[in-house]
């Protein structure tokens, strides 16, 4: 694990909570997260779990979009090498994510903000531990310091941000 480069500890606003999105493979980590829930394991609510069919489906664009749209960290989880439901998907993902992670860090993203882990369906404990450590690492880093949108585009703050991933409210669709 790399050393946390805390470049802006002073700027961390009070009551700020990191927002992290976890892309989890349907066949392993997503089930592992489910198992963690069944076992009543506690882990921070800063992580939003998003299911993908396989870590090989993980498009690098999802990561950039997540960071652009307000996430402070991204976690990608897949099956252990050798255990891929589609036999080889995570081998490709492994290469792609190694390259992509280096590229993001090259452009100035702190290494801890983008992490990849192999977590099987039985490893509820590992899921909990991973999430807890990622949340703590990102919390130490503070809000993402990349320019997300030009200032004139910034919308007024949303008072209650917990529903960011809610479905479209009825009054909008009606």
């Amino acid at each position: 694990m790399s050393v946390v480069e805390n470049t802006q500890a002073a700027q961390i606003p009070e009551n700020w909570e990191p927002k992290i999105i976890a892309f989890c493979c349907h066949w392993c980590t997503y089930t592992g997260a489910d198992l963690a829930g069944l076992n009543r394991m506690n882990y921070p609510a800063n992580v939003r779990v998003l299911r993908i069919p396989c870590s090989g489906r993980m498009n690098p664009q999802y990561v950039i979009e997540a960071l652009n749209k307000g996430c402070d960290g991204v976690l990608v989880c897949g099956c252990h090498p050798g255990d891929c439901h589609y036999v080889t998907g995570n081998y490709y993902a492994r290469r792609r994510m190694m390259i992509f992670k280096r590229l993001l860090e090259y452009e100035g993203l702190e290494p801890d903000r983008f992490q990849v882990r192999w977590i099987s369906g039985a490893e509820a404990g590992k899921f909990r531990d991973t999430v807890m450590s990622v949340v703590e690492q990102v919390r130490a880093l503070g809000p993402l310091n990349l320019t997300r949108e030009i200032p004139q585009f910034e919308l007024p703050p949303v008072p209650d941000d917990d529903g960011a991933f809610d479905a479209v409210p009825e009054e909008v669709t009606a």
């Binding site: 585009f153 919308l155 007024p156 949303v158 529903g163 960011a164 809610d166 409210p169």
Partner: peptide, 11 residues
């Protein structure tokens, strides 16, 4: 336009 929840900006 760029939408976020119930907000959006048209540009």
């Amino acid at each position: 336009q760029e939408n976020r929840r119930k907000d959006g900006v048209r540009f």
